[in-house]
Simulated assay, not measured.
Amino acid sequence: MIPEVLILFEDWADRGLPLPAYETPGAAGADIRANLPPNERAEGVTLAPMERRIVATGIRVEIPPGFEMQIRPRSGLATKHGITLPNTPGTIDSDYRGPLGVALVNLGPAPYTIHHGDRIAQMIVAPVVQTGFRVVDRLSDTGRGEGGFGSTGRS
């Protein structure tokens, strides 16, 4: 059985925009669109270089228990314009029912305008395993040991 994410539109949202969707049969992420409030639709939302902003999607979601939704950047926006997520991946927990906003940041050299209906991020629904935690006196030995950042080499 395929998990199903339930979607509720905000009262002000444009219901004519497409729901999140997989753009190709092999896509791992479903594209999410900016669904801007009525007062922002005509001009869009402009992000100055280094500016961060939460962009509205006009929806709320109900994610099945045992799953999470990861919000990730779109590669084209990131490489062409420097538009990415400052908290990538953003995690939406299965018990969250508030508005779905996408935190964006402009790392590019020029202002960038997000228009109503633009694809701004992608979502991946993934299983979650919750674990227990236990204090011990010693951890097991491994070949890597305490080697941290960069300790395994360049390639």
Rank of each mutant, 00 (worst) to 15 (best):
L47W: 07
L139I: 10
P111I: 03
P127V: 04
R53A: 15
K80G: 10
S75A: 15
P65S: 15
V105N: 10
L19F: 11
D31K: 00
P20A: 00
T91Q: 08
H81Q: 14
M123N: 05
T79A: 11
P127R: 11
Y22F: 15
V129F: 10
T142P: 01
F67V: 07
R52P: 13
G82T: 06
L85E: 00
P37W: 09
N39L: 11
I92M: 05
Q70R: 14
V55C: 12
G90M: 02
A21P: 07
I32P: 01
V129P: 10
F9T: 09
Q122H: 11
G148C: 01
Q70H: 14
P73H: 06
D141A: 14
R74G: 05
S155Q: 12
P109W: 05
I32G: 01
N35R: 03
G29M: 07
P37R: 15
H115S: 11
L104E: 00
R144T: 06
T152S: 14
L139V: 08
A21M: 08
T46A: 09
G153H: 00
M69T: 05
E4N: 13
A103I: 14
N106F: 08
L104T: 05
G132D: 15
P20I: 02
V135Y: 12
G66E: 07
V45I: 13
E43R: 13
G98S: 10
I54A: 13
G108D: 12
D93R: 03
L85H: 08
S94A: 14
T152K: 15
R144E: 04
R154Y: 09
D31Y: 01
D31R: 00
D118I: 06
P89T: 12
I83A: 03
V135I: 15
E23M: 14
P18Q: 03
T24Y: 10
G132F: 13
A48M: 13
A126N: 13
A30G: 00
Y112W: 13
R53N: 12
P18H: 06
A34D: 03
L36H: 07
N35A: 04
A103N: 13
G29E: 00
G147A: 15
V135P: 10
Q122P: 02
L19A: 02
D137A: 11
G29A: 14
V125Q: 03
D95F: 10
I7C: 07
D11Y: 01
G101K: 04
E4C: 12
E43T: 14
A78N: 09
S140E: 15
H81A: 15
L104S: 08
V136S: 08
G26L: 05
Q130Y: 13
P25A: 10
E43G: 11
P64L: 02
I124M: 00
R74D: 03
I32C: 07
M69I: 07
I83E: 00
A103L: 15
I124F: 01
V45R: 02
G66P: 12
A56S: 10
L6E: 14
G117W: 08
L17T: 02
T84Q: 02
A121R: 06
T131F: 10
